[in-house]
Design a protein around this nucleic acid. Structure first.
Length: 805
RNA sequence: GCCGAAGUGGCGGAAUUGGUAGACGCGCACGACUCAAAAUCGUGUACCGCAAGGUAUGAGGGUUCGAUUCCCUCCUUCGGCACCA
């Protein structure tokens, strides 16, 4: 008896699939397209780990399932190849990132093929390839042309000892990940993309997306729209005017002081030449340093210093002294805030520095109101609070006057304007890094930026650079880069030396898969129209707020530029769960990465991917353990023995047909919901039910079809053994006949006072009264009824009878 | 602190709209085959109890004939955000 041997069967089918080009999608002529996308990986030097498999294998099974429903499924794969690790590797070894990346991509492709996925490799993209990054640069030019790209000063993390700019991930508790020195903030002129211009649309479109609710909420909180007023204010004696954003305008009469961010340019102006100058500027420097080191504890570090200036009597309630305060966020609103007794933070600050407070709303309970008046605690956010000021609102509830107050401030007092603010910041796309797409901008001798004309794309990444950190962008050291620029644009013209954030590369790759490396067109509208939005996008939840917002923004912008017809790139999104090892995320530094290789060698891809899917729901993940892989291995061997080897074409035994249709229903329902674990258990149940019984070749084939998305290699082998024509992956998904699921008799559970006391078997056509009669006739039930007549009799169709005495 | 998700046997996990809790698999125990072991196959397996029966889905309460499922309070774990005025 020949065992099923994956080590020969799996390569055999992988080869046949490739030769027959079964997974090659005809993008132009697809009638029933289904775009199944999985987030493309970073080509790291390490092998694929269990986490990759946990992501790719079930995604592939779902693609196969959709294909068997008659869809032309497009499942591309590519590499998000720019990024830090290759550059760090270059710093350490001197190996050019292009070389190590190319090698990693090669080994990764081999490994991905071993999974047995249905990727259309002919459409592969590699973001570090000039044929790809010319479009990253093209996108930059479009943003520039449409005034969505601009330059301004921004802070970067800088390690003074390594002399290098650090990405946020390289900063560990305010210290450099590599040398442990305190990280500084350094202001550099950098490129930003105006994602904030799309904040409202990004918010408005969320409800229409078939995404996990959790992810939508995270994006909503990330964008964080807030509605309030901008209050016009003026600094006394100086006359400088500015606006202050207030999202709780109800308390404006309570405002007794103003706080300003230490970084705010007005601070210096206010104190220049005054007695406070020294003290204030020292404070500003100290807080700046503290913030740079990210050692800022927001709860404890509530501190400030008085500037000696005040805001000119804004509400007729006196001037507002201006303080520089550590907690004011420069990037939100205008960096200046009017403070009141009804804000927890302001309250604490005022108490600490003895600044007078004036509450304007109170609890209905007089005793409590006195406490508030005596400033015993900060009273805020209670919608039932009774307003006392302004006089026109006296007696009204705080929670109900918001809109009216805004109108009052705007129309009657004429001191403020209705305003909306978002927490979302513009996207900083500049990176002082080598291994990224060069920003296609050149500067004239006066330093003014000009776009690199499209005919010069790809604007190649130079290779004669210094990888070792020096404090400047590595491209600064390329002679070729500067010469090239001068040759094209003229003497003393200089290129932009920064490269782009890798999130730019990944913000449009789903469009480029469709273009089969077309170098002339970014996207063709008919393809985009037919294939977008992506039907199923699968990837980790860690991208909820970065990649998934950037990609949406880019798609919206491209629509406004006229290149695409859709606003949203991903209609349906699913996050796979995280596989941990001993409770911790797998990582090289922790040394807890599990390699699937030994499992594949021993059991094959089918067994391993099935085991991963059987572990639990796809979206849950879990802690890694290999106990139990035996179970799926046994299943595969039993399947092969029963359907592949011993199978004789016979007539289906009576219950085999019923079991088959039951299995079709269960597997279909489970696959539909991506509950692969229950799909597999349904297949196992069928196998248990059919073992040792007679079944037809047709039944065996249907079972093979059901198994095919989950164990593709085994299924092809079975299909061939059963004499099936073509590939099983090209078969139609089996359907079930609901009539066959109805049995002749049914078993009804009987409860007395909510407890199970018996079961009765009745004909499936039995009437309610017959069933109730049978239930009451059951001996055990009678025992518990104790001769009493039930005062309540409930019958749930086909399920149970509940009797109450 | 705020937002979100989840807590079910020894373990991973199942349970349409509230309707027989523990499917399926692992592990374990016993048995068959074997000189023996592995592999394979069979039987059993939530807990307490000899049994009748009772108790069980993180804890406590509520609604209901009936709650893993709905409501309230609390605990624990995980994920995200964190002075956003």
């Amino acid at each position: 008896m020949r065992d099923y041997d994956p080590s020969t069967v799996e390569p055999k089918w992988q080869k046949r699939w490739e030769e027959a080009r079964v997974y090659n999608t005809d993008l132009k002529n697809a009638k029933n397209p289904y775009y199944s996308l999985v987030m493309f990986p970073y080509p790291s030097g390490d092998k694929l780990h269990v986490g990759h498999w946990y992501n790719f294998a079930p995604a592939d099974s779902y693609s196969r399932y959709m294909r068997m429903h008659g869809h032309q499924v497009f499942a591309p794969m590519g590499f998000d190849a720019f990024g830090l690790p290759a550059e760090n590797f270059a710093v350490k070894t001197g190996t050019p990132p292009a070389k190590s990346t190319a090698e990693n991509v090669k080994t990764m492709i081999t490994q991905l093929k071993r999974i047995g996925t249905m990727y259309d490799w002919e459409k592969m993209v590699n973001t570090s390839d000039p044929s790809y990054y010319q479009w990253t640069q093209w996108l930059f030019l479009q943003m520039f042309k449409n005034k969505l790209a601009y330059k301004k000063l921004g802070n970067v993390n800088f390690c003074p000892s390594c002399q290098t700019v650090l990405a946020n991930e390289q900063v560990w508790e305010g210290k450099c990940e590599r040398c442990g020195s305190e990280v500084q903030q350094k202001a550099l002129s950098q490129w930003y993309w105006k994602i904030t211009q799309y904040a409202q649309k990004l918010l408005d479109n969320l409800p229409g997306l078939d995404w996990p609710e959790k992810t939508k909420i995270m994006q909503k909180n990330w964008i964080d729209r807030s509605e309030g007023v901008n209050i016009r204010s003026r600094i006394k004696d100086l006359g400088d005017e500015f606006e202050v954003y207030d999202s709780v305008p109800q308390t404006f009469m309570a405002q007794t002081f103003t706080v300003i961010a230490p970084e705010h340019p007005l601070v210096e102006k206010m104190v220049k030449g005054t007695a406070q100058e020294k003290e204030v500027m020292a404070f500003v420097e100290r807080i700046k340093k503290k913030k740079a080191a990210k050692r800022f504890n927001f709860m404890e570090d509530v501190e400030g210093v008085f500037t000696g200036r005040s805001v000119d009597n804004p509400f007729g309630t006196g001037d507002l002294p201006i303080w520089v305060a550590s907690f004011v966020v420069m990037e939100y609103g205008t960096g200046i805030v009017h403070c009141s007794a009804h804000d927890e933070r302001d309250f604490v600050f005022a108490k600490k520095y003895g600044i007078p407070l004036r509450p304007v709303m109170f609890p209905a309970d007089p005793e409590e109101a006195t406490k508030v008046r005596d400033l015993e605690y900060c009273y805020h956010k209670d919608p039932e609070a009774i307003m006392e000021q302004p006089a026109a609102f006296k007696g009204r509830k705080w929670g109900e006057v918001r809109g009216d107050i805004i109108t009052f401030m705007e129309k009657d007092l004429k001191i403020a304007k209705r305003a909306v603010h978002y927490r979302l910041r513009d996207w900083l796309v500049s990176r002082q890094r080598y291994w990224g797409a060069p920003i296609p901008i050149v500067y004239d001798p006066d330093g003014n930026p000009h776009p690199v004309p499209e005919e010069h794309l790809p604007w190649l990444l130079p290779t004669d650079v210094e990888f070792k950190p020096t404090g400047k962008s590595p491209l600064t050291y390329s002679k070729e880069f500067i010469e090239r620029t001068e040759k094209i644009f003229g003497k003393w013209w200089r290129p932009e030396f920064d490269t782009m954030d890798t999130f730019v590369c990944s913000s449009f790759y789903y469009l480029r898969y469709l273009m089969e490396n077309d170098q002339k067109n970014f996207i063709k509208k008919d393809l985009e129209k037919n294939w977008l939005p992506v039907n199923m996008y699968i990837g980790g939840p860690e991208h909820a707020c970065m990649h998934l917002i950037y990609a949406r923004f880019v798609m919206m912008a491209l629509k406004d530029f006229g290149f695409v017809s859709h606003e949203e790139p991903f209609q349906k999104l699913v996050h796979q769960g995280l596989i941990t090892n001993k409770g911790a995320k797998m990582s090289k530094s922790k040394g807890n990465v599990v390699s699937p290789d030994s499992f594949i060698d021993r059991h094959g891809s089918d067994v391993f991917r099935m085991y991963l899917m059987f572990m639990g729901p796809f979206t849950d993940g879990g802690d890694w353990s290999d106990t139990g892989i035996k179970g799926t291995d046994r299943f595969v061997q039993r399947v092969w023995r029963i359907f592949g080897q011993d199978a004789k074409d016979a007539k289906d035994a009576k219950d085999v047909t019923v079991e088959l249709h039951r299995a079709i229903k269960k597997v279909t329902d489970s696959m539909e919901k991506m509950h692969f674990n229950t799909a597999i258990s349904a297949l196992m149940e069928f196998l248990n039910a059919v073992e040792g019984k007679a079944f037809s070749n047709e039944t065996a084939k249907k079972f093979t079809s059901l198994l095919s998305p989950i164990a593709p290699h085994l299924s092809e082998e079975l299909w061939e053994a059963l004499g099936g024509k073509g590939f099983v992956i090209d078969q139609q998904w089996p359907t079930y006949d609901p009539k066959l699921l109805v049995t002749d008799t049914m078993i009804i559970a009987v409860q007395v006072n909510g407890k199970l006391r018996g079961q009765v078997e009745v004909g499936s056509g039995a009437s309610e009264s017959e069933i109730l009669g049978a239930a009451k006739a059951d001996t055990n039930v009678q025992k518990f009824l104790g001769g009493q007549k039930p005062k309540k009799e409930i019958y749930i169709k086909g399920k149970l009878v509940s009797l109450v005495v």
